[in-house]
Amino acid sequence: MTASATTRQFESGSAGALLRHWRDLRGKSQLDLALDAGVSQKHISFVESGRSQPSRQMVVDLAEALEVPLRERNAILLAAGYAPHYSDAALDAPSLSRISKALQRMLKQNEPFPAVVMDRYWNVMLANDAAPLFFGCFINLAAWPAPRNLLHLTFDPSGLRPFVVDWRATSRMLLARVYREALGHVIDPGTRQLLEELGQYPDVDIRRRALDTDASSPMIPLTFTKDGVSLSYFSLITTVGTPLTITAQELRLECMIPADDETERIHAEFVARHARERNSGTDGRSRPRP
């Protein structure tokens, strides 16, 4: 189903139609879903056809069995005539203070290597001190207003792209990650829009069949080069286990870890040298975009 069709369905569909949509996405029969949710197949059939109005608890149970993301579960509840069940509080809200503090600790613990917290669309929400210092070695971050999108920052020819080794393979790897890590394993309208925006950059093919990557490697490094120095990293990704809020479910903590001993050895010196050059105005980086 296309992104536009999915959007229309979520704007105007009944609860039964939305549940049927997710059941189709998961490749489950009504019997499969009935067994997983502990209800009768007949009842599911009646709900999907609109002949029966599901209770609030049934909507929650069916959505849980279908592994529907929390934001979309709220949409199904609204379509069924019920108030949203899952909070969408901001990360700095008191109710999320424990998660926020835990993320801040993890960001700090990854120093001196970069680490960021992103939402489901790769927008950076939090970062440790090392992240802007490292990325600032390559580009003028002042030209990129917050919230910065890590994929746009990487794909834009005026961003990190000129410094990425083997750009063609790396871009395919990153796009494959977008598909693989899409929340609920579904390309929702927001993710589709992000992919389409990335596809506007030169020499970027967002078609899924064009993104085959080498699955034999336990990790895919991201290597940067500047002034004859190459630094290789891989990502360690952390998500919130059993999230109870939309915000928590959509968070992703990404830590850049040195992929080899040489990168670990020279990382700090590389960052410090370019910080000195930046402060003295001799780094030669691109000036802010108009």
Score class of each variant (00 low, 15 high):
T6H: 14
T7I: 07
S12I: 11
G13M: 06
G16Y: 03
A17I: 06
A17G: 10
R20L: 01
G27D: 12
L35R: 10
G38D: 06
V39W: 01
H43I: 05
H43K: 03
R51T: 06
Q53W: 03
Q53F: 02
P54T: 07
V60P: 08
A63G: 08
P69D: 15
L77W: 04
L77Q: 12
A83C: 07
P84Y: 05
S87H: 05
P94K: 07
P94F: 01
L96I: 09
K101S: 12
K101Q: 15
K101H: 13
K101A: 13
L103V: 05
R105Y: 08
P112D: 11
V116D: 09
V116G: 08
W122D: 10
N123C: 04
M125R: 12
A127C: 03
N140R: 07
R148P: 01
L150N: 07
L151P: 09
H152T: 14
H152I: 07
L160M: 14
L160A: 11
D166C: 05
D166N: 12
Y179M: 07
R180Q: 11
G184H: 12
H185P: 01
R192Y: 02
Q193M: 10
E196A: 13
L198I: 10
R207C: 03
R208V: 01
A210E: 10
D214H: 09
I220G: 11
T242C: 06
I257E: 06
P258D: 06
D261Q: 12
T263Q: 10
I266F: 01
A275R: 13
R278W: 03
G281L: 05
G281W: 00
G284P: 05
G284W: 04
R287W: 05
